[in-house]
Amino acid sequence: MTLMDARTDKVYKVKEVHGDGNEKRRLLDMGFTPDCKIYVAHVAPFGGTILVGLRGFMVALREDAASLIEIGEAN
């Protein structure tokens, strides 16, 4: 299950970040590290872009970046 399949307003946990190179590292630097709590707050009106909340801030991700983030249920 990746961030693409996440329901809005539900808290998940990051499992892993896939991909390689710049893309992956930027996500890691932004704080998408394993065990980090995360949720999708909003899907953009024209789609394709989602607004994700983590570590106290919001970040807009396109679906290609979002699909790199593997998530799981938060307990």
């Binding site: 949720y39 009106p45 983590l54």
Partner: peptide, 23 residues
């Protein structure tokens, strides 16, 4: 408490970024 508090997303955004109302 499991609720994640986000300062950057507020009730205003629910309207401003609404699918039909945004544009």
């Amino acid at each position: 408490s499991t609720k994640l508090y986000m300062q950057a997303y507020s009730r205003i955004d629910k309207v401003v970024l609404n699918k039909y109302l945004a544009l």
